[in-house]
Amino acid sequence: MIRVLALAAMALLLAAPTADAQGRRPRSISEEVDRCPEPSNMGLMLCAAEAFDREDVRLNRVYRAALGRLKPAQQATLRAEQRRWIKERDTSCADWYDEAQNGRQGPIHGQVCAAELTRDRADELERMARPRRPR
């Protein structure tokens, strides 16, 4: 029980991206994880997992917004494209998770890979969901 509470507390501490001494946010998930306050493998994995979870929530939010701006036929196209993208993301990052090939930090790199690709896709969908300005 104490261990569960300790992990939950650590997850809360690591939940938000940390700013550097100048107050700048990290430019990449990798940079964010490098700034993780707990530099152990467990701490880095928690930071990477939190970054992925945050970007995944954001992706789902902007995906729904993008769907809402489309006609039914376009929605079907975006759904199919999104399913393909998820498979490609998972395939692209899968090799990182192999500890035998990449060592004990392989799973951390796998999480970072998935988080960065998810962030990039959310950025793309966010641009798609923005209302267009009349010319």
Rank of each mutant, 00 (worst) to 15 (best):
R25E: 15
K87T: 15
L14T: 15
C36D: 07
D20Y: 03
A129Q: 05
D120P: 00
A94V: 09
Y97D: 14
V62A: 05
E116I: 01
I108F: 02
A100K: 12
D34I: 00
A6W: 12
R79I: 11
R25N: 09
P134H: 13
A19C: 07
C93S: 04
I29Y: 02
R127S: 09
P131C: 01
P131E: 14
S40Q: 01
P37N: 01
P134D: 13
G106R: 08
A114N: 09
S30D: 14
V62C: 06
E32Q: 15
V57W: 01
A19I: 01
D56F: 02
A48Q: 07
C47Q: 09
Q82S: 08
A6I: 12
A6H: 11
Q101K: 15
A76Y: 00
R24K: 11
I108N: 08
C36W: 05
V57P: 00
R130I: 01
C47I: 06
L46G: 02
A51Y: 02
E88I: 08
L44W: 01
N102F: 12
L70F: 02
R27W: 02
A11L: 03
L46H: 03
Q101Y: 04
L13F: 04
A51H: 02
Q82V: 06
A15C: 05
L7K: 12
L5A: 09
V62Q: 06
L117P: 01
A80L: 11
C113R: 04
P17T: 09
G110F: 02
G103S: 04
K71G: 11
G106H: 08
I108V: 15
L117F: 04
Q82M: 07
Q74H: 10
R61E: 15
Q101F: 06
D34G: 10
N41P: 00
L5F: 10
A114D: 09
R69F: 00
H109A: 14
C36L: 04
L44Q: 13
L70C: 03
K71F: 05
R27N: 13
E81M: 09
R25H: 10
E88D: 13
A76D: 12
G110S: 05
R69A: 12
G23L: 05
H109G: 01
D34Q: 13
M10H: 07
K87I: 08
Q74C: 01
L5G: 15
A49M: 11
S40A: 07
A21C: 03
S28E: 06
L78N: 06
R132M: 10
A122L: 03
Q74A: 12
R127P: 00
D53G: 09
N60V: 07
S92E: 14
R119C: 01
R127C: 04
T18P: 02
R121G: 03
D120C: 00
P39A: 06
D120I: 01
D98Q: 10
M128L: 15
S40Y: 02
I2G: 07
V4L: 14
N60S: 10
R89Q: 12
Y63P: 06
